[in-house]
């Protein structure tokens, strides 16, 4: 056997193992958004190396090259065009879970008809420990759909995303009143009343109540 070919293949193998080590190591660092980008890029590099050296793309005829490239290209087409949808939906797919939240899905008894709500019903059980004016999640849905949705659906500017249970749980631990205070007076990226001064404090409270529901949080602590 050709010694040089064999040595090259061994080197390629070592390189692949090195990249694997790099990939695993990167998962021990907190790089934020760059973690998945880095691991995917390293995987793509490994794939490229396998295709080029182990699968002999380097010395392949043009037509098999095109066939291989077409497979990857079509995959990117599919992912890219599908993402045009997912990156631009107002109603995040996380909201889809609404339908199955307790109180929203097939509540056997006590479903309260509410003609004002878009879904036609109010949630069954109100969180018992809320402040004096309890949020009305059903009317909050309308406030949400006209104002809050612009940022909270997709998490613009660090806003907790609707339906993101973990994010809302963390915030709900401060108590609803604190959330209302922050939303009315502004807090970090959150403009006062979401930039809509015509909203009343109760409107804001309702909207927060709705978003807590959407996140599946039944009874926020004070």
């Amino acid at each position: 056997m050709d010694e040089r070919t064999r040595r090259n293949h061994l080197l390629v193998w070592l390189l692949l193992l090195g990249l694997l080590g790099l990939n695993i190591a990167s998962s021990f660092l907190d790089l934020g958004i760059f973690n998945p980008i880095l691991t995917t890029a390293v995987a793509a590099l490994q794939a490229f190396i396998i295709v080029t050296f182990f699968m002999s793309m380097r010395s392949a005829a043009p037509v098999p090259r095109i066939a291989a490239a077409a497979g990857f290209f079509w995959l990117l087409l599919m992912i890219g065009l599908t993402l045009t949808d997912y990156q631009t939906r107002f109603e995040d797919i996380a909201l889809g879970r609404l339908a199955s939240k307790p109180g929203w899905e097939a509540p056997a008894a006590g479903r309260v008809p509410n003609p004002l709500s878009e879904s036609g019903y109010s949630p069954v059980s109100r969180p018992p420990t809320l402040a004096a004016a309890a949020p009305d999640a059903a009317s909050g849905e309308r406030v949400y759909a006209s104002v809050c949705i612009l940022c909270h659906a997709r998490g613009v500017g660090g806003a907790p995303r609707t339906g993101d249970k973990a994010a809302w749980l963390k915030r709900s631990e401060q108590g609803v009143d604190t959330l209302v205070d922050h939303a009315v007076n502004g807090y970090k990226g959150m403009p006062p009343k979401g930039g809509h001064p015509e909203l009343s404090e109760q409107d804001v409270r309702n909207a927060i109540g709705y978003m807590l529901y959407a996140a599946g949080i039944q009874s926020p602590r004070r």
């Binding site: 087409l77 065009l81 045009t84 949808d85 631009t88 939906r89 107002f90 109603e91």
Partner: peptide, 22 residues
Amino acid sequence: GFLVWGHHLFVAGESVYAGVIF
């Protein structure tokens, strides 16, 4: 023909922006 499939989803909950592209 590979780039147009989204036109079956116009009213299925696809985003309006994606609808315009498709």
